[in-house]
């Protein structure tokens, strides 16, 4: 699975517990549409840090930065070494 798919699975299976949508598009709004509540957002940050081995800086903890799967993916990518996976 690529980063986008991993994030989508986490949101659908862990945060929405299968009670919400089965699929989430990479550009679907997560925060402003309230797909993710603030608690969900917190779990997301922890998940990202643990799963991808990156650190979300204090100043990056802004809900807007987590608005879409695409945005989150880009943020993760910018933190990972660019060389071979």
């Amino acid at each position: 699975m690529n980063t986008e798919q991993i994030l989508e699975r986490f949101i659908v299976d862990e945060l929405l517990l299968g009670a919400g949508a089965e699929q989430i598009g990479v550009d679907d709004p997560l925060v402003s549409s309230r797909v993710l509540d603030s608690l969900g957002l917190l779990r997301m940050v922890t998940f990202i840090e643990e799963r991808f081995g990156v650190t979300i800086e204090d100043g990056e903890l802004i809900p807007d930065n987590f608005e879409t799967i695409r945005q989150i993916t880009e943020m993760i990518a910018s933190k990972q070494p660019t060389s071979a996976d």
């Binding site: 603030s38 917190l42 940050v45 922890t46 204090d58 903890l61 802004i62």
Partner: peptide, 13 residues
Amino acid sequence: GNPFAFTFFAHQR
């Protein structure tokens, strides 16, 4: 100003 960051700090970091 940023309840999200606040809660993350208070809960975890």
